[in-house]
Design a protein around this nucleic acid. Structure first.
Lengths: 144, 144, 144, 144
DNA sequence: GTGGTCTAGACCACG
DNA sequence: GTGGTCTAGACCACC
């Protein structure tokens, strides 16, 4: 299924990260499946009216995350899902987001239950409807 | 009521904006009331282990917004007039955080339960450090 | 200890990867230790007479690998050593190198023992002399 | 003696160069002798599951080097004259591979023993697939 | 001062 | 056609 990416140029979130996030979500919802191709760097750049390097940077990030594989001369393909990072590393990455969310929740006096329900709703709209993202199996990565 | 600010150094959101946002929200939710004083630039900088310029910048922004008044040589005082955010506004503000968290969570295949537990832990640790009614569990009793 | 990086512009290995490899080796030999700073992007670019973006790309890669942390506005610091990738992922990355090495070894009829001794020599000159790289503790990262 | 080519698709080294190098080494080591035929472009491309153009490019390079002779319509034959690489040359050629492998290994904290075992396994699997004296274990007996 | 982002445009390698 | 690399130079945010 062709992915449609939309960016908002004035956002505090850099363009390339907007692309990264949308591809990730497309993966989770099943819009993009393993083996499918991403739009070419040049094509997406032209479509979004941005510089090809910006798209390349987004694709590069996805590549580092193991979500995408580049096939020399043929484009980028959605990779088979696998666990790239150790659990320790994943927690490191998520922690600042959790901290910030908790701070805001405390300041705004959002009750914990409501927070949970908000996240659940967001996850469901993105994840559990799809056979792909639904594999929230525990990952017991370990570290020294 | 003294405000407790929490920053996350690695965040995409600049530190000074994190401070601004938390003060704004404390104002909106009534945690901070007109006439109260903000911690001095130096004190807050020392407490958060950040550059005083960063705190100054945050306070500057708040002054420009008219939310605080600077009393030359004596610090910053919460200004009289304040906007109270509606619940909708609060949720709208928290939404991008939730979206980003969900995106990362799906990409990392963190199960929902673990996410919730992480947030709960973070809320407790932050809440206990901030004795200004931060116990926003459903029954926010005044017993403490 | 200040690191000295040398590049060979005409190499099949891209410049940014040459930088990456040399920083990695400096880490392994203890030339660079956790907490030390890397030369600034601009400084290194000027020293090597290459474009700052090229240095930035190298630093970016190191950052993705978790070997380096960027401190906003203050430069890049050598990170505390940690396990970022699952064992599965590490094997994925090393496999092509092993395959190629094995092919060449077979074609050249280099005996297995000699191969092992070559690698051992290389590892010793880079790794085990240093208190840092010597921590070749097993990492029992796991994956689904 | 028929040559068995092994390629690694994800390698930084382009596929066609991998082919070139392996043919060169087979020539140097005597695995391939003057007068023998290389597999046809189409056959090799099919066997390696790569684009025939890639094989053609490799053969082209070999022709230019005078290592093979193209017999119009009948394929490529190993040319008479061949250089025999000294052991030093072979080692010099393998060295960058070893260096890179060591770098990755240290960065990933793979213990030396595991590295050796990986190589041993790879040598066995490749060796058994390539019945042209690839058993370069210390005692390379002719018993097979 | 620092790194981060983005643009514009070039050349190469690969298929 | 594709992605990968590199250059040149801009602007921004943060310290």
């Amino acid at each position: 299924m062709p992915i449609t990416i939309q960016i908002t140029p004035g956002s505090p979130l850099p363009i390339y990260q907007q692309i990264v996030m949308q591809v990730r979500q497309a993966l989770a919802t099943g819009t993009l499946k393993a083996g499918e191709m991403l739009p070419s760097v040049r094509a997406l750049a032209e479509e979004l009216v941005i510089n090809p390097n910006t798209v390349a940077k987004a694709y590069n990030t996805l590549s580092h995350e193991g979500l995408v594989e580049s096939l020399a001369g043929r484009g980028l393909m959605i990779a088979e899902r696998r666990n790239v990072f150790t659990k320790e590393e994943i927690l490191r990455r998520v922690d600042p987001l959790i901290t910030q969310l908790a701070s805001e929740a405390i300041a705004s006096q959002i009750p914990f239950e409501e927070l949970v329900s908000l996240i659940e709703k967001k996850l469901q709209s993105q994840g559990s409807a799809a056979p792909h993202g639904a594999r929230n199996t525990p990952h017991d990565g370990e570290s020294s």
